[in-house]
């Protein structure tokens, strides 16, 4: 099969970008979308042109590196997969496929289809953890955790941090990401002691990073390659509200001012 890709080219965050059309010929429908880009890049290199920069690594849908907006949907037409798991059989012979980078103020473009998602890391630094010193953990079976809770936590933990939620949201909101990360830890007994501080800090960092606000449309969840549910956003809202209200009324130890 043959397709044309209309791909976004941009030298860096400062420069203006534009679309370029490239032909991808003699493709096998079982090729992945990224393998199709490999083919185009080999052609570009052989023609003495600059190949298209695109983020990729594991190519099995788990590292969360790949990040293209394909025909107006993050990670391409199929649901529940990352770009690297999108196969050419999802397109028709002769298609013109529009490929853009994820766009958000908090995700500045580095080059072509590659954007900087370090804002996610900053959110994690501010609270996406349980403070446990190495070597000081009690026996793993000391605290039983019901299967349902463990499974819910696992549902949230499936997040691969790709940023499709931000890319799909018309407000570039990062609520699904933050809610998945916070939700996993808040659900587990181990995460309870730091629950309030966690949500307050993570949301504050999220706000600072310049993400938009959630308008409860759940495009994020629909675009998520791991199909993480918007229920976690509701949980984050609840945990955040509870933490805020508690912070008004709860007594604090004298050492904490």
């Amino acid at each position: 099969m043959n397709v044309t890709i209309r791909v976004w080219r941009q030298k860096n965050d400062q420069s203006e970008g534009r679309f370029e059309d490239h032909e991808a010929k003699d493709l096998n429908p079982n090729m992945s979308f990224l393998e199709m880009l490999d083919v185009v890049n080999e052609d570009l290199t052989n023609a003495g042109k600059d190949p298209i920069a695109f983020a990729h690594d594991c190519r099995e849908g788990i590292c969360g590196t790949c990040s293209c907006m394909i025909n107006g949907k993050p990670h391409g037409p199929e649901s529940g997969v990352a770009t690297c798991q999108t196969y050419m059989r999802s397109f028709q012979d002769g298609d013109v496929i529009v490929v853009e980078p994820f766009r958000a103020k908090a995700f500045p473009i580095i080059k072509d289809l590659v954007c900087d998602r370090s804002a996610f890391d900053s959110i994690m630094h501010s609270g996406g953890f349980i403070s446990i010193r190495t070597g000081s953990a009690p026996d793993a079976n000391a605290i039983p955790i019901g299967k349902e809770v463990a499974d819910m936590a696992m549902d949230a933990a499936a997040c691969i941090g790709c940023g499709a939620c931000v890319a799909a949201c018309k407000n570039s909101s990062a609520m699904l990401f933050v809610s998945a990360k916070a939700g996993q830890l808040n659900l587990l007994p181990q995460g309870k002691p730091e629950k309030d501080a966690r949500v307050l800090n993570m949301v504050a960092t999220m706000d600072e990073a310049g993400f938009g606000n959630c308008t409860n449309q759940y495009e994020c969840s629909a675009a998520c390659p791991k199909e993480i549910s918007e229920e976690f956003i509701s949980k984050l809202n609840r945990d955040y509200l509870a933490a805020s209200v508690k912070s008004v009324f709860k007594a604090v130890p004298s050492t904490m001012g």
Binding site: F19, M69, N71, G72, K73, V98, E100, R103, A104, K105, A106, A168, K170, N171, S172, S173, G210, F211, G212, N213, T215, Q217, Y218, E219, S221, A222, A223
Partner: peptide, 17 residues
């Protein structure tokens, strides 16, 4: 929300909203 996406996509599908 407008400020959070300074440059819009050329095409964006609506998935679920």
């Amino acid at each position: 929300n407008k400020a959070a996406r300074p440059k819009d996509y050329t095409s964006q599908q609506t998935l679920r909203a």
